[in-house]
Design a protein around this nucleic acid. Structure first.
Lengths: 299, 299
DNA sequence: CCTCTTCATCAATCCGTCTAATGGACGGAC
DNA sequence: GTCCGTCCATTAGACGGATTGATGAAGAGG
């Protein structure tokens, strides 16, 4: 049976290391930011534990005893290794940012802007994961998440990015094909992309247009805004989309938004991360960047 | 300019090491002899310092994050090194016993008994240094000292070994050469070894023998009991010696002590060592042995 | 469904560590 | 020699980090 004898107090070892390196209690105290008295105390503690003096107290200088000489190099080396590992880990911790997002946001918003973040933070590697559900940050190795919801996740900090507003959009040529879209009811003369989407019903209701049997209308059901947006851009029909996801298409005229009427879903897209990590450099870097992008694009 | 970033609390690192090794907070707590709550706290502290989670909290088990994986091996290695160095140092500290003694005691008492100590403690290497003055234990690498004096050294523990008694001794044949030594004055008919030794004057005074001009008597002055003892054994004269140093010669008849009258010097031979080290294994081993030898030889 | 195990959290406590002041020992300057 | 500056040791006292014990939440297994 082999009983491992307990290590002496590590603070004492650390102090010993500094003293051995400097050959002086006072200088070690300065380096460690503590009093010479504290150093003296710690050395005494360690000497008690080891069972032998570690230093010879000579006038104006100290010298390592044989025991001390045997201990010092290994201790110094161990601390160097520890320090190096810590720095590396810390660096690694700051070097990779793992984002868990939902596909819609990734493809319609993040993808085309992420480049500017990477340019701003060249030392940060970004790993983008799209997952249907909000990850549990304590179980998965994820730094930040982007999710839709109400922003009320316990233990998580949440910043509202964009509202899940929706309104019909179509290509200018498709609008022209019926002589322009002047009022909401005009849309019913065009093919609706995914007419079963509950957003259509909501929007027509808000527009005061009776629109029964929408879900029975022929049309494609694609389920992801990116696809519907592409289809609309190609002039294949009218899609009901979140404008913030198609700012570029609206700006350059590939899509038009015929009506100002926006509906929304009571929920929004949020940036979320564990409250406790709010000060992590990479997290605040990303937060700062994305919130800046949001205000810039809504201007 | 390169600022060394401070290491995180070492207790936290130690806890982390144990947790990483066991893959369990609870088991690590058991190994470290503390509560699971304390382990949890320390890990959190370290995670705060590192700036990233070190473990993924999965049900019924934990797993290292990437950062943790990078940190753990180096930390374990560093602690192994530390532990090994500590054990070695501790072993070395206990493996060598440095005795600083005065020549007289070494040659007349210690030398012929030390063997039994080494047999009793085969793992202890003994280094015997003879020095005229009491060393300063805080400046010289010495574990124990044997010195004559009054036993009142501040900061030092002192055990009386033998009194510095003295009485005349001579070889049986020399005594027979004058028909036997019957009374103190008979000694004056024989050559005295080192007649200038103040011990002679003291002893004759105590014996009520007028003995003027002792120091002017012809004789050898050797100054060390060992030499005088040898000379006396060889029948070259009468020496005034400390009986405890010649127990063997008295026992086997090489020397005789004609009178019971002992004088002494007010001082004795002492075993001394720093009070603070009284519990050091090698010191108590030696103390126990030498005090046992003393009582055995005075029995 | 209940139980057991695991980790997280909280408030209260304890003890290890540190500080400030002081003293002793020594070396160097004058 | 005397004074001064530097160094380490010691002490009492205060602070704060570490620890505890109780409790809660989550999940696995019977």
């Amino acid at each position: 049976m082999h009983k491992t004898l307990p290590l002496p107090p590590l603070t004492a070892i650390r102090v010993f290391e500094a003293v051995a390196r400097h050959g002086s209690f006072t200088k070690a105290a300065t380096e460690l930011g503590m009093t010479q008295a504290a150093v003296s105390y710690q050395i005494k503690v360690l000497e008690d534990r080891v069972g032998a003096p570690l230093f010879l107290r000579r006038p104006r200088q100290i010298a390592l005893t044989e025991v001390g000489q045997r201990l010092a190099p290994a201790v110094t080396q161990a601390f160097e290794q520890l320090s190096e590992a810590y720095v590396t880990a810390r660096g690694g911790a700051q070097g990779t940012l793992v984002i868990s997002t939902i596909a819609t946001f990734a493809s319609n918003w993040l993808a085309r802007r992420l480049g500017s973040f990477q340019i701003a933070h060249p030392s940060l590697a970004v790993r983008l994961q799209t997952e249907p559900h909000l990850v549990d940050f304590s179980r998965e190795e994820v730094d930040i998440g982007i999710r839709s919801g109400r922003g009320d996740w316990p233990g998580l900090a949440a910043h509202r990015l964009i509202n899940a507003d929706f309104t019909p959009m179509l290509s200018p040529s498709l609008a022209a094909s019926i002589g322009g879209v002047k009022e909401p009811a005009d849309l019913l003369r065009l093919p609706l992309l995914d007419p079963g989407d509950p957003w259509w019903a909501k929007w027509f209701a808000a527009a005061n247009v009776p629109a029964e049997g929408l879900s029975s209308r022929p049309g494609a059901s694609m389920g992801a805004q990116a696809y519907e947006g592409n289809a609309a851009t190609a002039g294949q029909g009218v899609a009901i989309l979140t404008p913030a996801f198609f700012a570029a298409e609206l700006a350059d005229g590939r899509l038009v938004q015929p009506f100002d009427l926006l509906c929304n879903d009571e929920h929004a897209y949020w940036l979320v991360y564990p409250e406790t990590r709010r000060n992590s450099p990479k997290i605040s870097a990303f937060r700062q960047w994305i919130l800046g992008e949001i205000t810039a694009s809504s201007r």
